[in-house]
Every structure is written in structure tokens, then in C-alpha cells.
Design a protein around this nucleic acid. Structure first.
Lengths: 182, 182
DNA sequence: GTCTATAAAAAGATAGAC
DNA sequence: GTCTATCTTTTTATAGAC
């Protein structure tokens, strides 16, 4: 299944241009494959490409989550580890999030469920760490949302300002913010 | 200048579909104008439409900001007023932000400066309220960023989960969060 | 100001040779 | 598995009548 080999360029295209902004010509250029070859690997066209990328992303997120839950140390330390990996995945704030990019245009209806599942997985992972550290469950779930909100918002701001520093600051402060009492 | 009359449908299209996802057919349907008529009002095509919407948006944001700075009361009260208006502009979390939508695809390079200017205006407005309330300047500026980050991130999450409640919660808590000491 | 008609370019998709 | 060539549809954009 050599589909996997083409995931990195596809991920980069869809997160930066969105579903409607990615054309077969762009994909052809980025992968080095002709259009016909692309349809050989992905008979379903762009939809199947995005599905493939989302599947790979889910596996990646699960790994990050699992490693966080496995790791030793207190909650801030474990969350720091998750943040480090997440930050790396976004190139320290210089690349947008695929999940956000897929919420625009025609892609929204098609991939809504998969995006929702990934976001929920992510929120639950943060909440679990906080609950294990003794936080009340409803607050922990709110903080899970707050974590994802902070990361997504910081990515938007970094893109909009053309400056990754706000993202880097947020990522640095996030473990402490999530653990703080009400 | 009857261009202004078409701003609301154009704003709605571009924020929901992004620049690349909006086609002249969609615009024609949303405005009730034929394609040729659209080029009569906007000879520059989609670019000029977005410019027009961004200009209207800047005026709207300036109004919100000015009214906040003019309003009576302590900082949380003034920020609450700003949040109420902002929330309404996003239909209580059910509509995406144009600034975020324009950071994708071909629009990114074209409108970067205008998006940056609007985000900066917004951040500065929040910071100004906090500084007037006695907050240290660097912290106030961080909090300005945090406010925009929270709103943008909450909009993304609300879209992604298909549930506006996280956005409404964030908006409700935001004035207090922004004013709290370190 | 709005329309019909039309052109020109780009996009999605497939056939069939190698 | 990859390519060239081709086809269909869509999109952007314009000309010109009313």
C-alpha cells in the first residue's frame, strides 16, 4: 500500500490550501505523479486522498496521546510532552491545522464526522491526564476543550499575523494553564 | 455605491467557503445577480469583492472597539460588551470568521496585510481596556492576543464539533479570564 | 444596471499504450 | 505503475443587446 508514501505532501497541500484550493495540478506537482497515476492510487480522487491523510493523522494523534498517557511524571510534565509533539507537528506554529482547513467549503459536510472524532479524541486525552491528576471531571473536560481551543486559535493568529511567536508562547504556557485551579 | 448592499451575502459566502471555495455561480445565486452584473459592480472579480467585504468589516470592528472604549464601567463590564457584539457577529458561534477563512489557499498572500491589520486593531483594543484598568502593558498585550486566540479557537472547535456551546462558554468566561491577575 | 450568449482557461476524470 | 492524450464540466471573464 504505497498510498502512505504520498501522505506527507498531501497533508501539506490540504492543510495549506484547503480542500477547494487543492487542484490535481498542484497535487501532481507536489507528488511528482501524473494525474492518471494519482487516480491509479486514489480512484476516489481528492476525497480518497483526504480520507487517507485523515486516517494517517488519526494514527499519529493516537500515538501522541498514548505516549502521553504512558509517560511518567506529574500532569504538567505529561502535558508538556504532548505539547512538544503537537508543536512539532505544526512546525512550531508555521503550518495550519488540517482539521481547521477541512471545516471550510465543500469539505465540511463530507469530513465532518472524522474531524469531530479526531477533535474528541484529542480533548479526551487532555481531560484524562487532568482527571488522573485529581481534577474534577467536568472541569477537566472543559480544560480539554480549552487546550484544543488555545492551540487552534494560536495557529490562526500566527497565520494571520505572519508571526509564529504567539503560538510558541501559548504552547509554552499551556501545561501550566490547563492544570491551574479555578 | 450600491456595492455595500451586497456585502452581507458576500461576507457569508467567503467566511463559509473560503476564497477558493466561492465560485461566481454561488455568488450569483446568493446575490440574485447574473455574472455579468457582478462584474459591473466588481470589475476586479472575486478579489474586489473580498476587498469590499474587508473594508466593511474594518469599519464594523472599529465601531465595536470605539463603543467599548467609550462605554462606562470597569474592565470586565466593558469587555463583556465587546464580547456580546462579537458573539452576535459570529451568530453565537455558528458562523466562521472571515479572517481565518482568508488565511487559506490563494487568498493568503493577497489579503495578508489587511488581515494582519484587522487582527492587530482587535488585539490593541482589548489591551487598551486592560491597560486603562491598571494592568501592566506587556501582560495586557499578551491578554489581547489571548482574547483573539480564544475566540478564533472556539470558533474552530464549534465548527469542528458541530456544536456552538464551547464557543458560548468561552465568550461568557472571557471577560473574567482576561482581567485575572497572573 | 441587468441580461443572454459566448469565449477562454482550468479543473476533474478516463482510455489506452508502454 | 506511469505516461500521453483526450474528454467533460466548471469557472472566470467579456461582448453586446436591452
Amino acid at each position: 500500500m504505497s498510498k502512505q508514501a504520498h501522505v506527507p505532501p498531501l497533508l501539506d497541500l490540504f492543510r495549506q490550501f484547503g480542500y477547494d484550493g487543492v487542484t490535481l495540478s498542484k497535487i501532481s506537482q507536489a507528488t511528482g505523479l501524473g494525474k492518471a497515476s494519482l487516480y491509479h492510487h486514489f480512484p476516489g480522487g481528492k476525497d480518497e486522498m483526504v480520507e487517507t491523510v485523515l486516517t494517517a493523522l488519526e494514527q499519529g494523534l493516537e500515538q501522541i496521546v498514548l505516549e502521553t498517557l504512558r509517560s511518567q511524571g506529574d500532569a504538567p510534565t505529561r502535558l508538556r510532552q504532548m505539547c512538544d509533539r503537537i508543536s512539532k507537528a505544526y512546525n512550531d506554529g508555521q503550518k495550519p491545522c488540517l482539521l481547521a482547513s477541512l471545516m471550510l467549503g465543500s469539505a465540511k459536510e463530507v469530513f465532518r464526522e472524522q474531524v469531530r472524532a479526531l477533535l474528541t479524541l484529542w480533548i479526551d486525552a487532555i481531560a484524562t491526564v487532568l482527571i488522573e491528576a485529581g481534577m474534577e471531571e467536568n472541569l477537566a473536560r472543559q480544560r480539554g476543550e480549552d487546550g484544543v481551543i488555545a492551540i487552534q486559535g494560536a495557529l490562526i493568529l500566527a497565520q494571520g499575523l505572519g508571526n509564529p511567536l504567539p503560538f510558541q508562547r501559548v504552547i509554552q504556557q499551556l501545561p501550566h494553564e490547563l492544570c491551574r485551579p479555578i
